[in-house]
Amino acid sequence: MTLDWNVVWQHRGQLAAGTGTTVLLTIATMAIAVPCGMVVAALRLYAWAPVRAAATAYVELFRNLPLILVVFWAFYVLPIWTGLGLSPLATGLAALALNVTAYNAETFRAGLNSIRRGQVEAAMALGMSRAQALRRVIIPQALRRVLPVLASTWVSLFKDTSLVSVIAVSELAYVAMQVRAQTFRVLEMLTAMAAIYWLLGYPQAKLADWIQRRYAVSE
C-alpha cells in the first residue's frame, strides 16, 4: 500500500471551494432558520388554534424525519410544487432550512416558556400590554437562554451540510469524494476530508462550549 498525500495538496483549490460552500450553506441556513424559527415559535404559542396546530405539526414532522430523507424528498418534490427549476444547492438549502427551522422553533418556544410566570405578572402589574411584556421583559431574558442552544444547533448544522452531498451539491464531502473517485486515492482523500471537518468543527464545538458556560442560566 503506497500512499500519496500529495493528491490532497494538488486538489486544494477544489477542496477549498467545497469548504467555502459548506460554510456558505451553514450561514445561509441559519440566516433563514433563526427568524423563521422565531415566527413558528410565536405561532405555536400565541396564534389561534388551527394555526397553532399547524405550526406544531410542522415542528413535530421535521423533528421526526431523517434529514437525508428530507434532502432527497425536497430534490424530487420541490421542483414540482414550486414549478421552479431549483439548483441542487438551492434544494439542499431549502431542506436544511426546513429542518433547522423546526429545531429552532422548539428552542425558542422552550426559551420563552422557561421565563417564570411571575415576571409576566410583574410586567402586567405595571400596566404593560402583552406585547410590551414580551418585548421588554420576556424576550431579552429568553435570548440568553436560547443562545447556547443555537450555538449547539449551529455545530450540528455544520456537520449536517455533508448530507446534501447526496444530491450532488459541491460542498466539502461531495468534492472530496469526487476527487477520490477521480484519483482512486481513497484513504488519502477520505482522511483529508475527515481532517478538514475536524479542523473546522473542533474550534466551533469549543466555542459553543464557551457560550454554554458564559450564558448558562441557573435557576
Binding site: 455545530v155 456537520k159 449536517d160 455533508s162 448530507l163 452531498s165 464531502a173 469524494m177 477520490r180 481513497v186 484513504l187 477520505l190 482522511t191 476530508m193 475527515a194 471537518y197 475536524w198 473546522l200 468543527g201 473542533y202 466551533q204 464545538a205 469549543k206
Partner: peptide, 19 residues
C-alpha cells in the same frame, strides 16, 4: 468525544467502509 462533535456521521461511515 470532541472530535465526534466536529466530524459528520457521513464522513465517519464512509471512512469506516472505504478507508
Amino acid at each position: 468525544i470532541d472530535s465526534m462533535r466536529a466530524i459528520p456521521v457521513l464522513v465517519v461511515l464512509v471512512w469506516t467502509f472505504f478507508a
